[in-house]
Write a protein that binds this DNA or RNA. Structure first.
Lengths: 104, 104
DNA sequence: TTAGTATATTATAAATTGCTAATATACTAA
DNA sequence: TTAGTATATTAGCAATTTATAATATACTAA
């Protein structure tokens, strides 16, 4: 694959490379939410949250629509959750490994 | 999940968030390689490549062993390739979407 | 021992990212 | 129209990441 292709791929991973953005994605696992419902569950300012949502949107991870004065965000592809599940499995493996090497 | 958990997850994604590191991971798809065999396929300096390998190693994405004067790197879990495949599928979807919206 | 090869580490400068505070925009209701 | 709510954008600074150049370490062979 070309450098350009790897850059596109890396950009998606990069967008997922922040704890707040991971949390946003997880919040959306049960369905769409307006920003007003996302905000109280996060530990960051309104403007910062808005910026994180923009990053996720720019990489096609979430999409949004307007409903009255609210903006509703949703996940564009369930594939994102498969990715998160894979990462969690990788992390669990490593924890197991660390445990094993400690008890030797 | 806690902030700490999301941070662990984000760190793995972050490690994959660079085109050179994606390329390294792809190079290792066919099996382990020494640094000397990775270097010529990359467009970056020796020391920079070594730093990227360290990032991947720190996140448990690759592992290494020494063999004589060479260091051999390999992928720790095939799950990484499932993740890359998912991202590629997401990107292809978006390209299709863009095409569709252009032809409307 | 010396020279050469393979890889890692360090310092540092440049580029990017993240956060905050302030401001702007869009909508709703009085 | 005015005030209030919901969200986005901007500017500026701090923190992090990236690349380069230089140096260090480990191994091999002469």
């Amino acid at each position: 694959m070309t450098y350009l292709g790897n850059k596109l791929i890396a950009n998606v991973f990069k967008a997922l490379g922040h704890p707040t953005r991971i949390q946003i994605v997880k919040l959306l696992r049960n369905g769409e939410l307006c920003v007003c419902d996302i905000l109280p569950d996060l530990d960051s300012e309104q403007s910062n949250t808005s910026q994180h949502l923009t990053v996720l949107k720019n990489q096609g991870i979430v999409e949004s629509r307007k409903e009255g004065s609210k903006v509703i965000y949703s996940i564009k592809s369930e594939k994102i959750y498969e990715m998160i599940d894979l990462v969690e499995a990788i992390i669990l493996n490593q924890i197991e490994e660390t445990k094993t090497s400690l008890s030797k």
